[in-house]
């Protein structure tokens, strides 16, 4: 078992499982949490994540195949997705590819939202660009089911914030492309509404200059 990513919420191990290269997602107990709270958070997320990953596939968004779920140990065994994190790629591709990639990401987010799936952690570390040009969405650990406008806005707001903090050189154009891709999936009216929501959430953030 090789540790490939130690995340804040779970650790990913690369493993050979019945002659398959798989990812084992383990939600190890967090020493900083009391056992009652720790167990509650870990088991809830372990049940919830494979379920919503399946729903995402139904919505037409590439996600890893789930092979096994072990609630008692809070482990999930899933497909190893070949490719690179969008976080590593986005700043280093040509301007045209960057916009295409952003727009594709936006289209996928649109499909999720249209089917009532809120990813909950839309950072560029959680998107994998495959050699075939697909973007596979991973880590649905914080996702939720909702058709409400508010969580959709929060979801996209996080995407915007990730671009601003991690890909600040291209944040503006990338987010614009994300939103145009999003519009292709959900339509212009729905995009208008969520854009207004994002603005509102930004203003709600403390101490925004133009809030008052």
């Amino acid at each position: 078992m090789v540790l490939i990513k130690k995340g804040a919420e779970a650790s990913l191990y690369l493993e050979n499982w019945h002659n398959r290269k798989v990812i084992m997602k383990r939600r190890l107990p967090k020493k900083y949490r009391i056992p009652e709270l720790d167990l509650m958070i870990r088991s809830q997320r372990t049940i919830h994540e494979p379920h919503i990953i399946h729903k995402a596939k139904e919505a037409g968004v590439p996600t890893p195949t789930i092979f096994m779920v072990d609630v008692a140990e809070a482990n999930i065994i899933m497909e190893f997705v070949e490719g690179k994190q969008v976080k590593e790629v986005l700043d280093h591709v040509s301007p045209e590819e960057r916009l295409n990639l952003s727009s594709l990401i936006g289209r996928m987010i649109g499909r999720l939202h249209k089917h009532g799936i809120i990813h909950g952690d839309l950072t560029t570390s959680n998107m994998i660009l495959t050699p075939y040009g697909k973007v596979v969405f991973v880590d649905f650990g914080l996702s939720e089911r909702s058709k409400e406008l508010e969580p959709k806005g929060v979801d996209l707001h996080l995407m915007k914030r990730t671009l601003q903090s991690t890909h600040y050189k291209h944040a503006k154009e990338c987010f614009k492309a994300v939103m145009s891709g999003y519009a292709e999936a959900v339509g212009k009216e729905a995009t208008k509404k969520v854009t207004a929501k994002i603005r509102e959430i930004e203003k709600r953030g403390r101490y925004v200059a133009d809030r008052g």
């Binding site: 130690k6 995340g7 804040a8 919420e9 967090k30 900083y32 949490r33 009391i34 709270l37 958070i41 950072t123 570390s125 991690t166």
Partner: peptide, 18 residues
């Protein structure tokens, strides 16, 4: 305290990992 501080710690750890 347990719940609120666990939330703060999780988000800080996330930023640290990132």
């Amino acid at each position: 305290q347990e719940v609120a501080f666990s939330m703060l710690t999780e988000v800080t750890e996330r930023a640290l990992a990132h």
